[in-house]
């Protein structure tokens, strides 16, 4: 079958048409309805814009109130990270200096205490004197010895 014949066959489908009564009633019905332009479609972009703005304000408010915004955003910026690192190094150095100062002070105080005579408990001679005193006292009380002998024997 030739292409022309097929096309001729297809063209027969043109006989399929809507009934004239339908055409007439449908057209009259459509044209009787107002071509009203929906206000909703006009305002829709405004609605969407206002919702977006509201969401943005709420989001920013939450960030500002929580106070976590600056650190969160700073962590994303290389410049801020560098600054933070430099600040960290400085603070470590300052802490080391403070520790060294306190250590030196402690050593000085210790040396002063050692050289001081008031701290007799560290003096060997004093300790020996105290030991002798204890030995003397350990010789006992005769009354207590007598009472003990009475009880025991």
């Amino acid at each position: 079958m030739e292409k022309k014949e097929i096309i001729q066959q297809l063209e027969k489908l043109k006989s399929i048409e809507p009934h004239w009564e339908f055409q007439d009633s449908s057209k009259r019905s459509i044209l009787a309805s107002s071509q009203s332009f929906s206000l909703l479609s006009l305002w829709r972009p405004l609605y969407m814009g206002s919702f977006a703005a509201l969401a943005l304000v709420i989001g920013l408010s939450i960030i500002l109130i929580s106070g976590g915004g600056s650190s969160a955003y700073a962590s994303l910026d290389m410049g801020d990270i560098k600054d933070e690192l430099e600040e960290l190094t400085i603070s470590i150095e300052l802490e080391e200096i403070a520790y060294s100062e306190s250590l030196n002070e402690a050593v000085a105080v210790a040396l002063q205490e050692i050289s001081n005579d008031s701290l007799r408990h560290l003096n060997t001679e004093l300790l020996l004197t105290e030991q002798e005193k204890f030995l003397f006292e350990e010789e006992g009380n005769p009354e207590i010895d007598e009472l003990l002998n009475t009880v025991l024997f």
Partner: peptide, 19 residues
């Protein structure tokens, strides 16, 4: 169905022609 839908098509076209 074809008549109903054809009617709908032209009604939609009429209503949204301004766009």
């Amino acid at each position: 169905d074809a008549e109903d839908l054809t009617h709908q098509v032209f009604l939609k076209a009429w209503k949204s022609l301004k766009r």
